[in-house]
Computed example of a mutant assay.
Amino acid sequence: MKVDKMADLSQEIKEWQLMVTPENNMSKTEIIAAFSNGLFEKTFEYLSENATWEVVGENYFNGKEAIIRNCREVENYFRTVTTRFETFNIIEDGHKVAVNGSGEFIRDGLTVSYVQACDVYLFDDQGLIRSITSYCIQTSKPGTK
Results as ranks from 00 to 15, higher is better:
Tyr46Asn: 01
Met26Val: 04
Ala7Trp: 05
Ser27Asp: 04
Glu12Leu: 14
Leu47Arg: 07
Ile68Pro: 00
Gly101Ala: 10
Asp119Thr: 01
Glu75Ala: 15
Lys28Glu: 11
Trp16Met: 13
Glu73Gly: 05
Phe88Cys: 12
Thr29Asp: 11
Glu12Ile: 10
Arg130Cys: 01
Gln17Gly: 03
Arg84Ile: 14
Glu41Thr: 11
Glu49Val: 09
Phe105Thr: 06
Glu54Cys: 04
Asn59Arg: 08
Glu73Leu: 08
Tyr46Thr: 02
Ala98Tyr: 01
Gly63Cys: 06
Arg84Asp: 13
Val55Arg: 03
Ser36Pro: 08
Glu15Phe: 00
Ile31Phe: 00
Gly101Arg: 07
Val20Met: 03
Ile31Gln: 01
Gly101His: 09
Glu92Cys: 00
Asn50Cys: 06
Ser113Met: 06
Phe123Met: 03
Val55His: 04
Glu15Asn: 10
Val20Asn: 05
Cys136Arg: 14
Met6Ile: 13
Glu86Met: 11
Lys141Cys: 03
Lys2Thr: 12
Lys145Phe: 14
Met6Phe: 14
Gln126Val: 02
Trp53Ala: 00
Asp124Gly: 01
Gly57Pro: 07
Thr21Met: 02
Trp53Tyr: 05
Ile90Lys: 02
Tyr46Ser: 02
Asp119Glu: 03
Met26Pro: 01
Ile32Asn: 03
Val97Gly: 01
Ala117Ile: 04
Glu86Lys: 13
Tyr77Ala: 07
Ser36Thr: 08
Asn62Trp: 08
Leu122Asp: 11
Lys96Ser: 08
Gln17Asp: 07
Thr139Glu: 09
Asp8Gln: 09
Tyr77Trp: 10
Ile137Asn: 13
Thr52Pro: 05
Leu122Lys: 12
Phe78Ile: 06
Asn37Thr: 15
Ile129Gln: 02
Phe40Met: 04
Asn50Met: 10
Glu23Lys: 15
Ala7Ser: 07
Asp125Ile: 04
Gly63His: 01
Lys5Leu: 14
Thr87Asn: 10
Gly57Leu: 07
Gln138Arg: 14
Ala33Gln: 14
Val120Tyr: 06
Tyr114Thr: 10
Thr43Ile: 02
Phe88Pro: 00
Cys71His: 05
Thr111Leu: 04
Trp16His: 11
Ile106Leu: 07
Leu110Glu: 15
Arg107Pro: 03
Glu86Pro: 03
Phe61Trp: 07
Ala117Leu: 10
Phe88Trp: 12
Glu54Lys: 08
Val3Gln: 10
Tyr135Asn: 03
Glu23Thr: 13
Ile90Asn: 07
Glu15Trp: 00
Ser140Asp: 13
Ile90Gln: 05
Asn25Glu: 14
Phe105Arg: 02
Tyr77Leu: 09
Gly57Glu: 08
Glu41Ile: 05
Gly38Glu: 09
Gly101Tyr: 04
Leu122Trp: 12
Val56Asn: 06
Leu39Ala: 09
Val74Met: 10
Trp16Val: 10
Thr82Met: 12
Tyr135Ser: 04
Phe61His: 08
Cys118Ile: 14
Leu128Ala: 09
His95Glu: 11
Tyr114Asn: 08
Gln11Val: 12
Tyr46Arg: 00
Cys71Met: 08
Phe61Asp: 02
Lys28Tyr: 06
Ser27Gly: 07
Ile91Phe: 12
Trp16Lys: 15
Arg130Ser: 06
Ile32Met: 05
Lys14Val: 05
Lys2Gly: 15
Gly94Ile: 04
Arg72Gln: 13
Asp93Trp: 06
Asp93Ile: 13
Trp53Ser: 01
Ser113Thr: 03
Asn59Leu: 11
Phe123Leu: 01
Thr83Val: 13
Gln138Ala: 11
